[in-house]
């Protein structure tokens, strides 16, 4: 008897939830269409291209070639050396960005005079597009008219020197990415409950201990989020390096994105370039996944 009473109830609620779900989809549709149209579509198209011999030419018949691009990529030393440069670039820039931004954020979080002005100034580079930043720094590094050689009294062609070019663009990369990292860290700092500091102050903890035992652990989720985002952004950096060095001298600053761009738009190998893009996306996701997973596990 109880069964006959209770049975209709779940059916009704299931109908209810399915209707709710349908409504949810309908409401999401306007937001989904651009995502599908401009992100998912091209992404799938790119993945598809990676398994063809597509070329940016008028006379070429594109055909499916399976894993040919993949095996070619594995044997492409030039690509892997560019990948190595990309790894050095993104790890160094992310790490330095984080350290510099943390310092700046701590400074801006203190009770300084003109604090609000300083905060605004710190965000200024954020407002500039990478190409403008590139052009500006090109002038800074200019061998004859550059302000850097003027200040140091040297005569160095920073962006054309085999061993200095990469460090030179890393400095620019750090400078470019500092504002958003600083802002996020600053927001994180302001969310640290004051009571915690008061509590350790009662215990007589010094400045360093306060930072190490309160600030850093409290900031941890913010740090994890911003460094992983920074890593992705830096790995995918293109405009800045394209303007500064175009990958030179002798390929010493040819980041993998630049390499793929050249494959597609200079040598017309669209299919192969798609495979390179796909490989980069997978590597970034893997590195990121590993990092986030470890952080989560430690946090628990």
């Amino acid at each position: 008897m109880t069964a006959t009473v209770t049975q209709p109830a779940p059916r009704a609620s299931r109908r209810e939830t399915s209707r709710q779900r349908r409504e949810m989809w309908l409401l999401m549709l306007p937001a989904m269409v651009p995502v599908l149209l401009f992100s998912v579509g091209p992404l799938l198209y790119g993945i598809g291209l990676a398994f063809t011999d597509a070329r940016n030419t008028r006379v070429h018949q594109t055909s499916f070639v399976g894993l040919e691009n993949f095996t070619r990529m594995l044997a492409d030393e030039q690509f892997w050396s560019s990948f190595q440069i990309g790894a050095i670039w993104s790890v160094t820039v992310t790490a330095l960005q984080f350290l510099a931004a943390l310092g700046l954020a701590l400074l801006l979080n203190m009770n300084l005079r003109f604090r609000s002005v300083a905060r605004v100034l710190a965000v200024v580079p954020w407002a500039m597009p990478p190409v403008v930043i590139g052009l500006m720094w090109k002038l800074v590094y200019h061998p004859d008219a550059g302000i850097l050689n003027d200040l140091l009294g040297t005569d160095v062609n920073w962006l054309a020197d085999f061993s200095l070019a990469l460090p030179a663009i890393i400095v620019v990369g750090v400078w470019t990415g500092m504002p958003q990292t600083t802002v996020v860290l600053l927001a994180g700092l302001q969310n640290v409950p004051k009571e915690l500091y008061e509590a350790v102050e009662v215990d007589g903890a010094g400045r360093w201990r306060r930072f190490w035992n309160i600030t850093l652990p409290q900031l941890r989720p913010v740090i994890v989020a911003i460094t992983s985002l920074d890593f992705v952004w830096n790995f995918n950096q293109f405009g800045l390096v394209y303007v500064l060095t175009q990958g030179g001298p002798g390929g010493r600053t040819r980041l993998p994105m630049l390499f793929a761009y050249e494959e597609a738009f200079r040598y017309r190998a669209a299919g192969y370039a798609s495979m390179l893009g796909l490989a980069m996306a997978i590597v970034v996701l893997a590195v990121l996944g590993l990092y986030l997973w470890r952080q989560m596990r430690e946090a628990r």
Partner: peptide, 15 residues
Amino acid sequence: IRSALAVAAIVTLAA
């Protein structure tokens, strides 16, 4: 709706 989405995706790809 799912099939509508599939159609949208295919249209996107074709475009």
